[in-house]
């Protein structure tokens, strides 16, 4: 157990160095969601009726999820480089705890996504986002975003392990980035036609978006928060199982 902690710390230090030496990955991660935010608030926003005072307050929670979905693709990319560049095999031939290799990538993903989320939040504040949420609500928001990040990161691990090309490694994130568009993230689901509405209301993004939005707006999140947590836990469990299978497949 102490070896696992020590090895994970050493390898996380290595990936964080990678991150520090290419800070553009954090900027790139934040640019797309910020562009969406500007586009929706200043171009489409006027025509969208959400029932809230300010559209940026409605929109932000979905934008945060898009930030995470695009951020985790770098984890797949970095893991793919390790696997294809031989570092992965070098580490596997050494007497280290094997789980530490993947955990280091997961922790690094968490750090880089939190930084990207902070950048997006700063822009949102500049655009007029305000929240009167108390510390408990903010902690709950951070907790859910962390859980969502870790769950999607394990999906990224699967993609990074199985990919044959660099592009293939990051392609898994495209549907994840797209998913918020068919949810309550940008417009209320009530105006959507039947089947689309059914999908939107029953997919994970809507529950998570509604929870985060409710917490920030100091509204009750009673039912949504449990659905959101259940989705995150289910995605996490499924992704970890898939990652273990991918690891075994990759290592014969």
């Amino acid at each position: 157990m102490t070896a696992l902690v020590a090895d994970t710390r050493t390898l996380t230090g290595r990936s964080l160095r990678h991150l520090l030496r290419s800070p553009d990955t954090i900027v790139t991660t934040a640019v797309m969601p910020i562009a969406f935010m500007l586009l929706f608030v200043y171009v489409f926003g006027g025509a969208i009726t959400t029932g809230t005072d300010s559209y940026v307050e409605y929109l932000l929670s979905g934008i945060l999820l898009i930030t995470i979905a695009s951020g985790v693709s770098y984890t797949a990319y970095r893991l793919f480089l390790d696997v294809s560049g031989g570092i992965f095999e070098r580490l596997r031939s050494m007497p280290i705890t094997r789980a530490s290799v993947l955990w280091a990538h997961v922790l690094t993903s968490l750090v880089s996504n939190l930084v990207s989320l902070a950048v997006v939040m700063i822009v949102a504040f500049a655009m007029g986002f305000r929240s009167g949420a108390d510390v408990i609500a903010w902690l709950a928001v951070v907790g859910i975003l962390v859980l969502f990040t870790v769950a999607l990161t394990w999906l990224a691990v699967v993609a990074g392990l199985l990919a044959k090309t660099q592009d293939g490694a990051i392609a898994f994130s495209f549907p994840l980035i797209f998913l918020p568009f068919i949810s309550s993230a940008f417009v209320p689901t009530a105006t959507m036609p039947g089947p689309v509405r059914w999908f939107a209301e029953n997919q994970p993004v809507t529950a998570i978006v509604n929870t985060v939005r409710g917490l920030l707006a100091q509204e009750p999140v009673g039912g949504d928060i449990w659905v959101a947590l259940a989705w995150c836990a289910a995605i996490l469990a499924g992704a970890v199982v898939a990652a273990m299978a991918a690891y075994r497949r990759r290592t014969g």
Binding site: S22, G86, I87, R90, M94, P95
Partner: peptide, 18 residues
């Protein structure tokens, strides 16, 4: 076995960024 040996693979496995 992993404690006993060390492998230098067919392709240099160094971390290019470090």
């Amino acid at each position: 076995v992993r404690e006993s040996m060390s492998l230098t693979g067919q392709f240099a496995a160094v971390d290019q960024i470090l």
